[in-house]
Structure formats: C-alpha cells, structure tokens
C-alpha cells in the first residue's frame, strides 16, 4: 500500500480516495484480557455441557472434573472482564439494563447465570451436600453453557469492524467449536485415559471443525479477510493451526494409551485455541487500521444498488 500526497491509496486491485490514509472506524480499545476471556468463557460454557452429559451417562470422574474446570473458568472470566473495564469499580452497571441489541449486555447476564450455577454446583459437589440443589444448578449451568460459548463471536460481529461484522455468520460457530475443543482438551488432561474417551473425541472432533471453520470464514471474507494472512493475525493463525493440529493428532494417535500423550496433546490443543482467539482479536485491529476495508466493500455495495 502506498500513500500519495492527494490522499489516494493504491493497493493491489484497489484504488480509492482516503483522508491521508487515516482509519475510518476506531480500533477497539480492548486489552489482552479480552481474547483470554473469550477462551475462558468458552472453556467454562463447554465444560458445563460436557459435565452434564458425563453425569447423564454415569461417567463420574469425567463429570466431577469437568464441573470443577468449568467453575474455575467461570471465576477467571469475570475477573478478566472487570480488569479490562476503564472503570472497574462500575462493573455492576452491566446489570442496570438488559438489551438484546447489545450482545455484551445479554452476555453479562448469561455469564452471571452460568457463573453462579457452575460455582454453586461445584461447591455443593466438594461439600457433598444438597444433592437436589446441585442437580438443579448443573442443569442451569448446562443450559447457559452453549450461549456463553457462542455469544462472544456475536459480540465482536455486532460492531463496524469489517473483518468481524462480515464474519457474523461464522463467528459464533467458530467460537462455539473452539470452546468445545478447549473443554475436551482440558478434560483429556485432567481425567485418566480410561475415562476420558468422550473428552478426547470432543477435543479431536471440535479441533477439526474449528480449523475448517476458520478456513471457510477467511475464504468467504475475500478481500476483507486478507488481514488473516498478515501481521499478528497471521502469526497467531499459523500458531493456532500448528498447535491445534498437532495436539489433535497426538490425542488421536496416543491419547488412548498414554496419559503423558493425552496431557501433551490436550495442552497443545488448548494453546491452539488461545492462539485462535488472538488471531481473530488482532484481525479486528488490523481491519480497523486500514480504511480500504471500510471503503472498498461499501463502494461495491453502493454500486450494486445502483
């Protein structure tokens, strides 16, 4: 890309005017807490679901450990979110209103429900008390899990950042799959191999889906999606592919027999899913920084309307 004195920008195949090449939409002001929250929120949500199914089929070890993993992630999540606020002391202002036009508003309430439910269930499990209340809390946590794991994709899609808004079809799916893969991987690490079958299968299956969805998203985005090949979004994307792919392969090949392989494979998958969130996060900044991603598609849209 080159900037001319008259404010026009030329890049491969695109010629447009701009104001000294300056951005049109603002870069997000979110800090590193946010991509990590995407990861932990997803882990919490999907662990709640994994826990519920493990309980249903009577796999006690898997059920207990996924409950604890989910509850822990449900504590880390809100801490990250509060820490990112410009005014952390006003965190509770999130609960002044409920707005469907704001995925952050909806998500705050979902997180409140999920966090309360999973931690109530985990506490009662550890104390061995009030079985009926625990079961009810587990049920609530399982229901809140899928929305918790997917709403974050819609949260970033509901912005004017081209690479996020144009990916509104894929993002909740991508984040949901990444969450499922994370929950499976964490459980595959925490549970002895004999009882970790479903966790392993989930980690492997969801990893494949995650990698595939990201590819589909990037292709469909076309010009706007090229940020995924560049700079940080590109590097994190490659790390994610490598780690998730290698981790899933290791789990598939040796995860059944060796706990060490399961731990290594699960850790690689977790690292890959963190990198995936970072790739998507940084892509938004790159997309905001270059006015071509705003102007070129809008010009095309206008021309198509005639």
């Amino acid at each position: 890309m080159s900037h001319h004195h008259d404010g026009s920008i030329t890049a491969v195949g695109t010629q447009m005017d701009s104001y000294y090449g300056r951005p049109i939409v603002k870069e997000p002001v979110w800090q590193p807490e946010i991509p990590f929250y995407f990861f932990f929120g997803g882990l919490a949500g999907a662990s709640g679901v994994l826990h519920a199914f493990a309980g249903l089929v009577g796999n006690k070890t898997l059920a207990r450990r996924t409950l604890l993993i989910g509850a822990a992630a449900d504590i880390v999540g809100p801490i990250l979110l509060v820490s990112d606020l410009g005014r952390p002391e006003r965190a509770l202002n999130m609960f002044r209103v409920f707005k469907v036009t704001s995925p952050m508003s909806v998500g705050s309430w979902v997180l409140l429900v999920s966090g309360s439910a999973s931690n109530t269930a985990a506490a009662l499990e550890l104390m061995g008390k009030l079985k009926p209340v625990k079961v009810a809390a587990e049920f609530v946590s399982a229901l809140a899990g899928p929305p918790l794991a997917t709403y974050t994709g819609t949260l970033i899609a509901d912005t004017s950042i081209p690479v996020w808004h144009e990916a509104r079809h894929e993002l909740p799916w991508l984040f949901g799959a990444s969450a499922a893969s994370s929950a499976g991987a964490a459980a595959a690490i925490a549970v002895p191999v004999d009882e970790a079958g479903p966790a392993r299968r989930l980690a492997i299956g969801a990893s494949v889906v995650t990698l595939g969805l990201k590819e589909v998203m990037q292709r469909r985005l076309g010009f706007v999606g090229e940020v995924y090949e560049k700079e940080e979004a590109g590097s994190y994307g490659r790390i994610s592919k490598l780690c998730t792919g290698a981790g899933a392969a290791l789990l598939a090949l040796a995860g059944k027999r060796s706990r060490a392989a399961a731990v290594a494979g699960g850790s690689l998958v977790l690292a890959g899913e963190v990198a995936l969130r970072w790739s998507v996060f940084r892509a938004g900044f790159q997309s905001a920084r270059d006015p071509r991603y705003v102007v070129v598609p809008q010009r095309e849209r206008k021309a198509a309307r005639g």
Partner: peptide, 27 residues
C-alpha cells in the same frame, strides 16, 4: 436479529456436538 438466530443455532449445534462425543461410549 439474524445474528441472534444464527447464534442460537450455533449454540444448539454445540450441544449436539458434545453429545456426539459420547456416541463412541461413555468412557
């Protein structure tokens, strides 16, 4: 509205996906 509809379907799909992991056996 379209985004929430899509999110709801993705959430449901996740539920099914996790359930599917138990198809090969409970442990």
């Amino acid at each position: 509205a379209e985004m929430w509809r899509n999110t709801a379907i993705a959430a449901a799909a996740m539920l099914v996906g996790v359930a599917a992991a138990f198809v090969g056996g409970r442990s």
